[in-house]
Design a protein around this nucleic acid. Structure first.
Lengths: 177, 177
DNA sequence: AATAAAACAGACAAGTCAGTACGATTTTAC
DNA sequence: GTAAAATCGTACTGACTTGTCTGTTTTATT
């Protein structure tokens, strides 16, 4: 990946995540990334395609970070609880902007945007499977339950701009184990 | 409320909910509501104010419908399970568009929109309290837990456009009671 | 040093955005 | 029937939208 393309993706990622997809204009992206508009359209066919590239890269990076936090702990309950430490870490790092995937899900009208929808669904399915794999030998039947609470933890802390809901949910999960 | 104002709110509500706040233009609203633009701005100072009016009215109507579904059941566990029947009902009626409040939360950049944020937070706080009141004598300590699962039920069914997650969560809740 | 690829600046299209202004017309109330 | 209030139509502002196009300059490779 050339430097320009990387700068475009970095900037678009930051802006899409911070202020939303529809509220971020192409002109804003090229201005902040310090590239020419033609350069952007040489790398990405449209704003939609840029969005998909953003989501796909975020998917990779997000999971890499999640795995790092979870797999630093020993297998078992502490790994499950680490899921929520990760949420708190991301809340701080990204000022409670929540989940990029769910945020964009709220912005798109589904009928025309099934390519984007597919990327979002895949991300969440992968997350659900990852939680299953972490839960594996301990309390297999709880995996979905913990996934649902994980989703709530992200959303409720985005809504109230505080870690309290995550802590509440972490306590609930503890009581389930 | 005059008929024009009502028509504006009806149309704006439908469009905001179906296609999102930022994707819905004032011109689209006045065209579909069959009113003059000056009439809209006589009733609502700005698009933001129209958004707040929309959320406040939806808050009322949404709770009225929720209460109707829940309080048709006898007090106790069946009322708690009815919460999720309500989610399924809304999913069908509104084609899995999820929660208007969370959708708009994803669209706004928080620093400038604290008035809107406040309405959204109030809605969720009221919901949390309502679930507490329904849970009251049966399993008081579970109220928050059920609230978090309720939120997930809405979001996951919006994401996958199907009732399956609600049914899964309803089963989880059953196992908790 | 020559060639090819990448990025550059900037103008342009064609449309949409929220919001204002103003005079004309209709509806409502007394 | 008259007066007041509501609504109407329409044009307009000024800024912003995504995307295209032309031609120039920079960068990297050989």
């Amino acid at each position: 990946m050339t430097k320009a393309k990387e700068r475009i993706l970095d900037t678009a990622s930051r802006l899409f995540h911070q202020q939303g997809y529809n509220s971020t204009g192409i002109n804003e992206i090229i201005a902040e990334a310090n590239i020419a508009k033609s350069t952007l359209y040489q790398h990405f066919a449209s704003k939609d395609q840029l969005c998909i590239a953003f989501l796909e890269r975020r998917h990779e990076q997000w999971f890499t970070q999640l795995r790092a936090v979870v797999e630093a702990k020993e297998r078992g309950q502490s790994q499950l609880l680490a899921l929520f430490d990760f949420v708190m870490q991301m809340n701080e790092k990204e000022q409670y902007r929540g989940c990029s995937f769910l945020n964009i899900l709220s912005e798109i009208s589904v009928q025309n945007q099934s390519a984007i929808l597919q990327v979002i669904q895949q991300h969440k399915t992968d997350l659900q499977n990852y939680i299953k794999s972490v839960t594996q030998e301990t309390h297999a039947h709880l995996a979905d339950h913990i996934y649902f609470l994980f989703e709530s933890a992200i959303i409720e802390s985005q809504l109230y701009r505080e870690q309290a809901p995550v802590l509440k949910i972490k306590n609930i999960v503890t009581s389930l184990l």
